[in-house]
Design a binder for these strands. Sequence first.
DNA 1: CTGAAAGCGCTTACAG
DNA 2: CTGAAAGCGCTTACAG
Lengths: 334, 334
Amino acid sequence: MVTMQDVAERAGVTKQTVSNVIRGRGAVSPATAARVRAAIGELGYTPNLVARSLATGATRTVGLFVPTVTGSFYPDIVEEVEDVLDANGYHLLLCTTRLDGERAKRHLAGLTSRSVDALLIAGDRDLIDHLPLLAEASFPVALCAWETDAPDRFPVVTIDYERAGYLAGRHLRELGHERVAVLASPDHGPRVAGFRRAFAADGLTVPDAAVHTASEPTPAGGFAAATAALTADPTITALFATHDVLALGALEAARAEGRSVPRDLSIVGHDDNPEVGVARPALTSVAIPKREMAREAVELLLRALTRSGSPANSIQLLRPELVVRDSTGPADGR
Amino acid sequence: MVTMQDVAERAGVTKQTVSNVIRGRGAVSPATAARVRAAIGELGYTPNLVARSLATGATRTVGLFVPTVTGSFYPDIVEEVEDVLDANGYHLLLCTTRLDGERAKRHLAGLTSRSVDALLIAGDRDLIDHLPLLAEASFPVALCAWETDAPDRFPVVTIDYERAGYLAGRHLRELGHERVAVLASPDHGPRVAGFRRAFAADGLTVPDAAVHTASEPTPAGGFAAATAALTADPTITALFATHDVLALGALEAARAEGRSVPRDLSIVGHDDNPEVGVARPALTSVAIPKREMAREAVELLLRALTRSGSPANSIQLLRPELVVRDSTGPADGR
DNA sequence: CTGAAAGCGCTTACAG
DNA sequence: CTGAAAGCGCTTACAG
């Protein structure tokens, strides 16, 4: 392997002159700079990043933890993070925790050893127990896509999930719906709370019995929960699913029950995944700006890096937006 | 930051004794090992991986290039690669090239500088022009999920795509289909060739005019191509889509044309993505062992690392398997 | 079983 | 504008 010393000898200078021309810093005469560049080209020299990292204390690598890279949520996060990183000359070290706390812990320990300049943790499932490990990390850490129990030790950039639920509720209220049910995944408390708030604003209440927890975040789980909801209270005129996949299942359930959407039943989803636009009827859903969220989170980290301080310990909430399509209509069914 | 030297002083030994107990190598008396371990605990010492990398010349990091991390193909690859890496104590540096050759090149250049112990390139889109950059890489490189034009300079682990097409063709032949059409994505030449081989074996030929190239790898692209195929030759009794998403569109097209699947038209997909099992009718598809492929590829790389030689320059083909569901039936339509 | 030395390939002040 | 020195935090032979 060719080293900086080799280049220096070839160009007839010392190695820190070579270092200077490579980094474009310090003062080097145009003539010697040209000689150095020529030597680099002839030798095919490429600087050893590991050595540079040891000397500078920076690896220009950012770690990202996500629960998984399948599904329709996290891949966008990963790509957005990578885009921002790439634009700033950083690399991405990826860890998918896959519902495995031990694995998460192991990776966390590995990264703590200076091999990463900053760390972004997206999603709340597997890492929460091990977050204390990061308390004394020597690099900035931020959290994103965190819905519940965000530890207040780190800055977090996430969605205003409570408002997302509120938007869904307000939309149904504006359409005149009074008796409704919710299909919820276990960790979606804030969305449910926001939904209820919209009804409470009109003096209506969504009883606990109207909130049906889905056994799994799949269309099948949504189908079962929706069927349960329609059986428990056949008079409901609308359904809020805290996740689009559940809404997809609810669409099937409505069909199975012989209820036409949106005439007999309105359905609102959450996330605005690409597939909900092609569902029939196209699903009304709360869109969450996940790419913007990811971008804000990385940029926060990058800012901390250049200003070499820790980021402000704050929580930043991105605002969701309701996307109205064909699965919701007036409560009176006309 | 606490260093090995600090631990050494605290334990009353020299730093390479500390190094020895950490790595569990060299001979250290149980008593001093215990003292060292105690000191490590008290100080909260964690070894600097960058310094270790500089000394050993290994980063215990493997780079992975994929075109994207969205969709249903590459995420599985990424997770499988990470699983194998994790089991062997390696980290994952991820680069998604996103159809951007410049970006790919930039990352390639970055990784060449010793910051990665090995490199796996999955998918053939964006990197082929820059592969020569890797010719003199000092670390092992392997390719996987490569369908066409695999450069013969590197070992490749991929799917026997020609056989995948053949399996689809043979299945249709066994059902008695004679007049058929193919919906193909541009880069799927081998699948089409294999499909044709199955017909040629029976003295039949699939004319060029029966191969319809989809404008885009989406249901919409499949819909358009299928419609074109059915219009060009209304007598066909079966369709092979080289990608499941195209098959999904073909299903719609058949519906639109008033042809019942599989009675009036049989459809075979490719990839066996999870969604094709829930399509109605459930799609017959050629399943490709992508996780096994990814596993083989990383393990090949890891083997090269431990044996510190370059991997054998070979091509390993994983065999696909046909999964018969409800979208195919006999040509006579009974 | 333990310690002193050299080295991995850079960068960072600091003289000249 | 250029060069000699020290140092980043480890590991790897090699003496004792």
